[in-house]
Simulated assay, not measured.
Amino acid sequence: MPRKSNANATTDALLAEFQALVADTEKLLQTSTELAGEEADRLRDQLRSGLHRARERIDAAQESVREHGKAAVDATEDYVGEHPWQAVGLAAGVGFLLGLLVGRR
């Protein structure tokens, strides 16, 4: 369970970051025609900062997903290596069920 809560926390943080980024972008677009000089520069800097934070979080999330995927692949390979006939039976059962579902159409 810790993996899921960590993944959910990462997802929530990413969503919050993107919502803030969208809000900043909308604010910049709405006021871009009215602003000049330092105010426009300040808003652009805020937007760049938001984009940079979002990019860093995306990179971190990508690495986390990659690590979890590699762990899942390793665990699957270990299980199949230790229990080959059970893996074949499971795959056959899943294939049979999918065949039944597709055949009903």
Rank of each mutant, 00 (worst) to 15 (best):
Q46I: 06
H52G: 04
I58M: 14
A36F: 09
A61T: 03
D41W: 02
D59F: 04
L51E: 14
G37K: 02
A60Q: 09
L47K: 05
E63A: 15
D59C: 04
Q62V: 10
R57Q: 15
D45H: 07
S49T: 15
Q46T: 12
I58C: 13
G50I: 03
L47H: 07
Q46P: 02
L51K: 09
D41A: 15
A36H: 10
A60Y: 00
L43N: 05
R55V: 04
R48W: 02
E56T: 11
R44C: 06
D59W: 01
R57Y: 04
A61V: 01
R55E: 14
Q62W: 04
Q46L: 14
G37I: 07
G50K: 03
R66E: 10
A40N: 04
E63Y: 02
E39Y: 04
A54F: 01
H52I: 05
S64Q: 13
R57V: 01
Q62I: 02
R53C: 00
E38T: 13
A54T: 03
A60G: 03
E63P: 00
D45L: 09
R44S: 09
A36D: 14
V65S: 14
H52E: 11
R57K: 15
S49M: 10
D59V: 05
E56P: 00
H52N: 10
L51C: 12
L51W: 10
L47P: 00
R44N: 09
R44F: 06
E63G: 05
A60R: 08
Q62S: 11
E38R: 09
S49C: 06
R66C: 05
R57P: 00
G37C: 03
D45W: 02
D45R: 09
R66L: 07
G50F: 01
A61C: 01
S49H: 13
G37V: 02
D59T: 08
A40H: 09
E56G: 10
A54H: 00
A61G: 07
R55N: 12
R48G: 06
R48L: 14
V65K: 12
A40R: 13
G50N: 10
R48S: 11
S49Y: 11
G37D: 07
R53E: 08
R42E: 11
R42T: 13
H52R: 07
E63V: 08
R44V: 10
E38C: 01
L43P: 01
A60D: 05
R66W: 06
S49R: 14
R44L: 13
A54L: 01
L47R: 08
R57C: 00
R44T: 09
R53H: 08
R48T: 09
E63N: 11
R55M: 08
Q62A: 11
Q46V: 10
R53Y: 02
V65E: 13
A54I: 01
L47D: 03
L51V: 09
S64H: 06
R66K: 11
I58H: 12
R57F: 05
E63M: 06
R55C: 04
A61I: 00
R66H: 10
I58Q: 13
L43T: 05
R57I: 02
L51T: 07
L51Q: 15
R55L: 12
G37F: 03
R53V: 10
G37T: 06
D45E: 11
L43M: 14
H52C: 05
V65T: 12
R44G: 08
G50V: 03
R57T: 04
S49Q: 15
E56M: 12
H52M: 06
V65A: 15
A36L: 06
A54N: 01
G37M: 05
S49D: 14
A61N: 07
V65Y: 10
